[in-house]
Computed example of a mutant assay.
Amino acid sequence: MFERFTHEARQVVTLAQVNARRLHHSRIGTEHLLLGLCEQPATLSARLLARHGLDHAEASAAVVRLIGPAPAEELDRDALETIGIDLDAIREKVEAAFGPGALDREPERDHRGRLRSGRHIPFSPGAKKTLELSLREALTLKHRHIGDGHILLGLLRGGDGLARRVLDEALVDTGTLRREIVENIGPHRAAG
């Protein structure tokens, strides 16, 4: 299916993974797809979402507010502080030696136990459903490609998950948003 994705749609998926990793989440959920959509301000989806009052910063803050901090990280910080270890001081020293974000990169091991770089984060069932629905939306509109607008339509059609809670909290009129997307990408329009 990903071969049908436009560059912008592929970027949504890539940015969803980046956002999941940044938030220390173990799966890419609908909320991460929404963040990926919002993070590309030049795309139709990001422009329409912004017009409805939702940008990347607001969506990201809502995700953190709705899910809360990564529990293990907070417990580790508290445990270390009780024995007199300042995690912020350690972070500064490690980043001075190994570069910014060095502690945020988790080491991954292959099936033989060897360290490998990068890590794949799996999609949640809701995110998989959203991507499948984006294909259905493209087919309904008689498009041969899947663009960022189709992914947003898939999110809206799915109707559940954390992305929908973020949209509802931001008071986005999803019916109007859906109509605006369809008006802009309409049937038989070429990929951008």
Rank of each mutant, 00 (worst) to 15 (best):
E73F: 10
D160A: 13
H120Y: 13
E106K: 14
G113M: 04
I90V: 15
R47Y: 05
R22G: 08
Q40F: 03
V63E: 01
G159I: 07
G154M: 00
L139F: 11
A79W: 03
A138Y: 06
A89T: 14
L133I: 07
A70P: 09
I28A: 00
S124D: 12
E95V: 12
D160V: 11
A96H: 13
G158T: 02
P122S: 11
S60F: 07
D110F: 09
A61C: 07
G158N: 15
R21W: 03
L103M: 14
R114T: 04
G118D: 07
P107I: 15
L49R: 06
E39W: 01
L103C: 10
E39C: 06
I28D: 00
Q40D: 07
E95K: 12
A79R: 10
E39R: 08
E132W: 01
I85W: 01
H150L: 06
R164N: 10
R112C: 08
D55H: 08
V94C: 09
E92M: 08
A97S: 13
D160N: 12
H145D: 01
I28K: 00
L49F: 09
P71D: 12
L75R: 14
L162G: 05
L23M: 13
D148Q: 03
L115H: 04
L133W: 05
L35Q: 01
R164T: 13
L80Q: 07
G68T: 12
L131C: 02
R157P: 02
L37A: 01
E137W: 05
L135K: 02
H143Y: 07
R165S: 15
A20N: 02
E74G: 10
A79D: 08
D55N: 15
H24D: 11
G147A: 07
L103K: 09
A62R: 07
V64Y: 06
